[in-house]
Design a protein around this nucleic acid. Structure first.
Lengths: 160, 160
DNA sequence: CACCACTAGTTGAAATTTGAAAGAGTGCTA
DNA sequence: TAGCACTCTTTCAAATTTCAACTAGTGGTG
């Protein structure tokens, strides 16, 4: 439990940390360069565009984006100011509200998407062979599942 | 150039984005839970502890951490306030300064390290088999190299 | 119904991050 | 050696993010 990482894992960890940080930085920069959207903005737009009614509950959105509630509130307010989304009270639950994609938001997404996707391909995907893609998918799917589960259970019973 | 990502790559991308975000969040949380250090703090301490004289030029540090210069200034100031590092003028170049690890910083690192490494293992590494570790290393090493190079050349000649 | 513990989302203040200057110094070139 | 273009780091203000309340509302229970 106080063991080190073996050297292969340690190298993997370092490579991952640095490269993932650089990738994120690069994507943000590219996105900003040709679209007025941040990565978070883009991601919100994508998620909204994919649901029926192009709307999502705040909590749902926060969960998918891995954002804290207050961060999401800020994020949506900012997008609302810029006309990309609208906020509507949730019909079922009067505590809740939902973010709704506007026409302008959809337009912004459709304009940004090709650039952004090209950026993802250029910086990452084009360099990967199919086996590597499969490996990444497998690893990160599992990781996501595990972390999602961990968070859910720690929220639930608070093992402290 | 306006092509989509094929569906395998798209799935990989989504899995990666979500899981990497969750992982980062989880590691920060764990670190904070047993050490008063943020991930950035920890990373700075590691980098400093590895150089002879346990010191680094600001620029060098910023490069390795993938931090903007101003972010690094803030980061180091904060760590200086907490006694983890010291700032010293660079002997060779009077424009520069270097961050130097203090005894307290080293101690903080040594106390935090086992917990943090356990956290990395638990959340990520223990779940990976050797082939996956090798794959991640290969992919992210290449990615890091590529992005580092891209940034260097765009800074150099400004292709705009 | 009245109470209570819990959930959804927002708010406010403080901490951090960004982005555009500014301050200082370096080093080449004339 | 004066001038100039560039580099290293910091500073300042604005934008974002966190963290800890707080407001509303929900869903049992008695």
């Amino acid at each position: 439990m106080t063991e080190n990482l073996d050297s292969a894992r340690s190298a993997a960890w370092r490579a991952y940390i640095e490269a993932s940080q650089r990738l994120y930085t690069q994507l943000e920069e590219d996105l900003r360069a040709d679209s007025d959207l941040s990565f978070a903005d883009y991601h919100v737009l994508v998620l909204l565009s994919e649901t029926p009614g192009q709307r999502q509950r705040m909590g749902e959105l926060a969960g998918r984006l891995v954002f804290s509630p207050s961060r999401l509130t800020y994020q949506i307010s900012s997008m609302q100011r810029r006309g990309l989304v609208t906020r509507e009270p949730c019909p079922d639950d009067r505590r809740g509200s939902e973010a709704v994609l506007t026409a302008a938001g959809l337009l912004a997404l459709s304009e940004a998407a090709p650039h952004h996707l090209a950026s993802v391909r250029t910086h990452l995907m084009d360099d990967l062979d199919d086996a590597e893609v499969a490996c990444l998918t497998r690893v990160f799917d599992r990781l996501g599942d595990r972390l999602r589960a961990a968070r859910a259970s720690s929220t639930t019973h608070a093992t402290n």
